[in-house]
Amino acid sequence: MSDGYPQAPSVGLPGRVSIQAPGNPHDEQSSAHPHHPKLQHHFDDMGQQAEASTLGMWVFLVTEIMFFGGLFLAYLVYRTQNPMAFQEASAHLSWKLGAFNTAVLIFSSLTMALAVRSAQTSESRGTQVFWLVTTMILGATFLGVKVIEYSEKFAHNNVPGPNFVWDGQYPAGAEIFYSLYFCMTGLHALHMVIGLGIMTVIAIMAWRRQFNTEYFTPVEITGLYWHFVDIVWIFLFPLLYLIGRHYGGH
């Protein structure tokens, strides 16, 4: 390369692209308007920044679907292999607590949507924080109920592992069911906890009056995440609590 090509060849197109001088019409938004304080340097404008963040969250949720997808596949396979055991094991879960939690989560999706709306329409920080905190309380309620359900399973040694005890007819299949139950609901609960953590930050930001019509992307993408976590539960609830309850139910 010592004898390389110091310049581009003189034949051919003069330039591959035209890098235009400053002040060209496409650059005006950065010079004509003052920078929004939340605009990061590598974005051209707030619209591009918001679109990037939202698309980023959607793509992330796609990865989450694949993440839970592996568990759903395992559930499908083992349910097909052990239909009776899954019915029996499922009957030992309290569908009432599950249904209560479903209602709680659906309601929390509503309050989350209202939180996004209140930021989007530049409502007072009190309103924004109220909806966020309400959502957090509902989320915490869900987790509290989950703790009750888990501790009941621990008390009866229905937790898979060497000490698993099952007094029904299908101990082996029930153990697989509860392995999947704890993996799926545990992972879901972990997502809830992460969601509560994010919402704490968002609520503090809202209290500091950072969100308004021009800038509310963080609230919006937190909302997307929270709705996703709710939807996962909407699938988990019937699969784990409801299917096959007619058989040997309590």
Partner: peptide, 13 residues
């Protein structure tokens, strides 16, 4: 400044 692209990026002729 942000470049403006007017044709395919690998045109030699």
């Amino acid at each position: 400044v942000t470049p403006i692209v007017t044709h395919g990026t690998h045109q030699y002729a």
